[in-house]
Simulated scan of single mutants.
Amino acid sequence: MAANNKSKSRSTTRELLLRSASQVVIEKGVEALTLDAVAQQAGVSKGGLLYHFPSKDALMQGMVEQLIQDFEMTLEAEYDQDDTPGTSGQWVRAYIRASLRISQKTLALIARLSSIAANSPQIFESAHTYQQQWEKRIESDGLDPIQATLILLVSDGLWLSEIFQIGTLEEPRRTQVVEALFTMTRAATK
């Protein structure tokens, strides 16, 4: 029982550190992300932070992994709540809905973290792993894989345009595009 409590405590501390790092990045930018700033924001010692994240790169990689895991959880919940379970396009529809649920705070964090992609590509390695898994899901979702890929790219484009405030769709056009994507998931079977 004591080992289980230690594990929960470590997990809780790790989550606190990731939330604190995210808060620093959102409020002050990536350039303000230091181990000292995160430790102070979290109210832990620098040694406590280093126990979980031995470097700034490890901390940023943890932030990226947390973003992806949060998206995965939303994606799985949306998959389970599909209005036509067991039909072609169920996973692609879940992906669209999960993308629409990305919060403004998360969008801000993604925007700030994306600024380091060119200089620290290793931080985003886990994103490549998930991308490969998602491509496999596309292949087995019952839709034409090219059509499904196009749908996901448009879905990604919607939230990316919001991040960078370039080409952001106004209502009602945005809703019409989303509705068209859902329609395409029901009409694009293999």
Rank of each mutant, 00 (worst) to 15 (best):
L100G: 05
V25E: 02
R19E: 08
V30L: 15
L152W: 08
S155K: 02
A32T: 06
D70M: 11
Q176S: 09
G142N: 02
R186K: 14
S11F: 07
I116V: 14
V25C: 04
T185M: 02
T149K: 11
I110L: 12
D80Q: 12
Y79V: 05
N5P: 13
S45F: 06
A118L: 15
E171W: 00
K105A: 12
A127D: 07
Q132A: 14
S126Q: 10
R10H: 12
R93A: 01
Q147F: 10
K8F: 06
I116Y: 10
L153H: 12
V30F: 10
T175K: 09
I166L: 12
Y130S: 14
T149R: 14
T175G: 05
A39Y: 03
I151Y: 04
E76R: 11
N4T: 09
E125D: 12
Y130G: 09
S45H: 07
D141G: 03
W159S: 07
W91L: 06
S55L: 05
S99Y: 07
Q122P: 08
T175W: 01
G48C: 02
V30N: 06
F124M: 06
L169E: 01
W134M: 13
V30P: 06
S20C: 02
T183A: 12
L49K: 05
T168M: 07
R173G: 00
D80S: 11
W159N: 06
E31T: 10
D144N: 10
L100P: 07
Q23A: 15
T74N: 15
A37G: 02
N4V: 14
Q66M: 09
W159I: 13
T189H: 11
Q131D: 12
W159M: 08
Q122N: 12
W159P: 07
E76A: 13
F53H: 05
M1T: 11
F164R: 11
L49S: 03
A117H: 09
L59H: 01
V24K: 04
A127P: 06
Y95L: 08
